[in-house]
Amino acid sequence: MAKIDGTLTSARQVRCALCNTKAIVYLPYSRRALCKKHFLHSVESRVKRTIRRYQMLDNARHIAVAVSGGKDSLTTLYILNQIAAPAKIKLTAIIVDEGIKGYRDKMIEETRRICEKIGVQLNICSFKEEIGFTMDEIAHADKEQREVSCTYCGVFRRWILNKAAREIGADRIAVGHNLDDVIQSYLMNVLRNEPSRLARFGPVGGIIDDEKFVKRIRPLFTIPEKEIALYAILRGLKSDFGGCPYVEEAFRPVVRNFLNDLESKYPSTKLKLFSSFIEMQKILEEKYKEAYSDINEDAAMIKECSSCNELSSSSLCKRCELIKDLKALMRR
């Protein structure tokens, strides 16, 4: 018999630290291996604890879950569905079809299957209808003249989700950001020297209190990405995995690979970085609180976009600015 951090193992099979059946995962930060049953329970308990700790659902009546058909958003939807029904909170899934042939259309079908299985309504919005362009069209525009694909996708998706959630009367938007997303954003913001952005990236998002902004919550905030993938497989939410064809243009995959290599060589690195982020975020939030309270108090600083009437810090919001540039680019 060998020992892995307190968990007895045979030469062939690692055993669950709680019930001694076959383990399917080893969690380095808690130094224990878990079987399927105890792992699923562990993930769900941590998500529920995060929701309670950050008061994500206090006084919530209707949650719009931003789904993409990926493991993170389907896991968010599945676990929130366990919580919402007994708490009498309405749940609606919203998927944004960016128009990426062979990628998103397949995921919409998978999402539809899961929503039907768990009895949650699915609303579908599209870039073509809301923006005027599909991501395929944007990605084929001159690379030298445009922003990276992820910039358009991120800005447009956020704009559509906020509007769609507000239109159905939702008071929360739940997104599938996981622990890996958090630490990647942390490191990216440090490398780009953008501390004020970090101050805003908490478990409950949104710096401006305004009825036009629907509050964002991140229930998977403390769960590592690989654990979510495992959870999604074990719950039958996901079997085929794949990546967005346009993702390689972004900085994030470089940071992701770097952190994954670090975690592989030095286990628990991710959790330590996450703990560092939690401490730093408190300090930065305090530091930038004054600036944000100025924004909230001074209504003149919150403008309505002259084109779409959504809230914006300038006369033209980022979504409309990007559309304007794209139209000019497409005409050339």
């Binding site: 892995i4 193992t9 399917i24 080893y26 399927k36 690989k226 994954n260």
Partner: peptide
């Protein structure tokens, strides 16, 4: 960090032989 491994159809940990 980016893979799940199955041995004879069952998911295993990275310490399984």
């Amino acid at each position: 960090q980016i893979v799940v491994v199955k041995r004879n159809g069952r998911i295993v940990t990275e310490f399984d032989r």
